[in-house]
């Protein structure tokens, strides 16, 4: 049966929302899936809310704009507040609970709380909160193969930052084990 993942990643500009989206998209690409990645762009990117629509699917992708996500990854409170009601019933919300104290009040969605920021600090990979969240999402939902997920890191980290490859892979592992 064909499967489509509609994912919305949302947070502040600078939290790596777009990069983690790219990682998920590349993992899908390496699995031979159809993928699309659509960022919010414009002034809101600068310090305001930043979000990224991701579709990973067995079928050709129509609209790349995710309006009713199957999965919401919320990296700050404004993003959770803005998108919590748009998640489809039966969907999944992953909350970075080091950034968001509030609990999701819906009972028709599965919610995972993970202290991504705290885990990043403890493991001395600060700033990798976003990748830890991707690791968590992979653990709970298995949207791609593990091999592709780690290979995607090699594809997404720019050549001038190769030192970050291992750091990001470590962050994925932390998320998977959390």
């Amino acid at each position: 049966m064909s499967k489509t993942w509609n994912v919305l990643l949302a947070g502040f500009g600078g939290q790596g929302v777009l990069f983690s989206g790219k990682l998920i998209a590349y993992a899908g690409l390496l699995d031979g899936k159809e993928v699309s990645w659509l960022p919010s762009y414009g002034p809101e990117m600068r310090g305001g809310t930043c979000n990224c629509s991701l579709v990973v699917s067995d079928d050709p992708i129509g609209s790349p704009l995710v309006v009713t996500p199957d999965v919401l990854v919320a990296m700050n409170l404004p993003s959770l507040d803005k998108f919590v009601d748009s998640v489809v019933p039966g969907g999944t919300i992953i909350v970075d609970s080091s950034m968001i104290e509030k609990k999701v009040e819906r009972d028709d969605v599965t919610v995972y709380y993970i202290e991504a920021g705290k885990l990043a600090r403890e493991n001395e990979i600060e700033g990798c909160d976003n990748i830890i969240l991707v690791g968590k999402m992979f653990k709970e939902l298995g949207f791609c193969t593990e091999e592709s997920l780690f290979k995607a890191v090699d594809k997404c980290v720019p050549a001038r930052k190769t030192a970050m490859i291992e750091v990001n892979k470590n962050a994925l592992k932390i998320g998977i084990n959390a």
Binding site: S36, W37, L38, L65
Partner: peptide, 10 residues
């Protein structure tokens, strides 16, 4: 348009 310009696809 802005959507096609900004989005990524394989």
């Amino acid at each position: 348009d802005g959507m096609l310009g900004q989005m990524m696809e394989p």
